[in-house]
Design a protein around this nucleic acid. Structure first.
Lengths: 264, 264
DNA sequence: CGGTTTTTTGATGGACGTCAACCCAAGTGG
DNA sequence: CCACTTGGGTTGACGTCCATCAAAAAACCG
């Protein structure tokens, strides 16, 4: 009985609780392949055939695309309990590569089987669509962020996102010993430590140069927003960083009135 | 019998042909609301409740988000036959606003009904997921484009994208008189005319200033890549523009070998 | 301990935003 | 018919943000 998939869904979307026993069973029955990846190893490259649907169990991965000029764009990071490149479920080829950032364990589910099982029940389909919507919303957010914010804001936002996503990831299978790459301290006295991420990764994710990322981080240090500790970036002033990033906590968007005329 | 929805799907995804008569009927039965929008009018704003699933029938719309500093980011354009913000299907509120760029007619389908009907058949669900994947791929493309390309490339790419999407849009209900905003000439002698789009829109879509967009367009004119004619941009040298944009026609991604070790 | 990777810092330059002005076409109202 | 507005396009001067180059310092890894 494999509950990883359901746990992962539960971590990402609320309506899992609405699933019936039978539906949960449908998901539990799928037996995943366990893929062990060494730190820094390439799980797959863009263009390779994509057989399976992937879920990160341990460690951190990121997917990326390589550009003509040799640089790479990191599209997203994946923490334990997160599903990799949902949008590629129906595609026969990977549109981006995946690399393990730390030693990682990835669960691979057969795509055909996943699709077949999801289509057995409307709720499961709905749930899947829900997930994709969420991922799309994230992408949109990222798009706006990258194109309209300066380096300071982007780096701050990135740190915060990594912080929150990695701490949420701790709730996923917390019984399992967590990989040592996680240096997350308790938020004692307002501070909290962070994953030790090389600056080049931040740069590639944000479309900045390593040099500039470094400079921004120095600024943050000088402003006592963060602090370096053994190759990790520790957040000292969460609220301060949030205000630098323009972080909207609950995203309560305004809703003025006015609808277009409707005819016929 | 309303076939707009099926036509739209057919224009975006191949597997529509696999749909059975019955499934096509399921879709044809839904009666959309017709929403007429004047040029420049706001169809809805971000944060407003989202009741319906929208399909552009005539005209051009774009969705956008407003930022703290007062600027706006245009997320995508929508041409006739394209579905607006697919990812929001399962969301109760619009995460971005929609504005009619020209006089437009939009078909509004009740979300609940769409969802109910899609969930009736696995093929329909699959089809929908397919669509969302595609949109996500586009978004990813845009993300990479915005963060890694210079203004020249971005503008060139934008012009090409608008060109191809608008000419594909002509195939959608071609029996209907096309809105006058479309000034698409036949590709006679290698040239082809383009929608007359204000530069400020290009700027907002690409995250550039109007001034700089203008400069880039001037360059293009000097290089005989484009030419202005009565408030429209005509593409003179399609291939030239493609090479400026780094446009990959068929996107044949390389697929080297190497898989990670698999255990258990 | 030397070789490699990552971080750090400075100097220089290019790309692009901002400000400010001017032009031109299309109304609009007298 | 003409003054006035309005919205977009065009152009120049100037400044800022950030990439690039280069090189040292620090951390890591046999």
């Amino acid at each position: 009985m494999a509950r990883e998939l359901i746990n992962a869904l539960a971590g990402n979307v609320e309506c899992v609780t609405e699933l019936s026993e039978a539906e949960q069973l449908i998901l539990s029955e799928i037996e995943p392949q366990r893929i062990h990846c060494d730190k820094g190893s390439v799980v797959f490259r863009e263009g390779e055939p994509a057989h399976s649907f992937l879920l990160v169990e341990h460690g951190i991965c990121f997917n990326h695309r390589h550009l003509e000029d040799g640089s790479r764009q990191i599209i997203d990071l994946y923490f334990p309990g997160e599903m990799v490149a949902l949008g590629e479920l129906s595609s026969a080829y990977h549109s981006s590569g995946l690399t393990a950032f730390s030693d990682a364990v990835i669960l691979g589910y057969d795509k055909a089987e996943i699709k077949e099982r999801f289509s057995r029940s409307p709720s499961l389909s709905r749930l899947f669509i829900e997930l994709m919507s969420q991922e799309q919303a994230n992408l949109t957010e990222r798009l706006v962020g990258v194109s309209r914010h300066c380096a300071r804001q982007r780096v701050a936002h990135f740190l915060l996102e990594v912080h929150f996503r990695s701490s949420r990831a701790m709730n996923f299978n917390s019984r399992v010993p967590r990989p040592s790459i996680f240096e997350i301290g308790q938020p004692e006295s307002g501070r909290s430590a962070l994953v030790s991420i090389p600056q080049v990764l931040i740069a590639d994710a944000l479309g900045l140069s390593v040099v500039h990322v470094n400079r921004v981080l120095r600024q943050f240090r000088q402003e006592a927003l963060t602090q370096t500790q053994c190759h990790g970036i520790e957040i000292l002033d969460l609220e301060g960083l949030k205000s630098v990033a323009g972080w909207l906590s609950a995203e309560p968007r305004i809703a003025p009135a006015q609808m277009p005329q409707i005819s016929k």
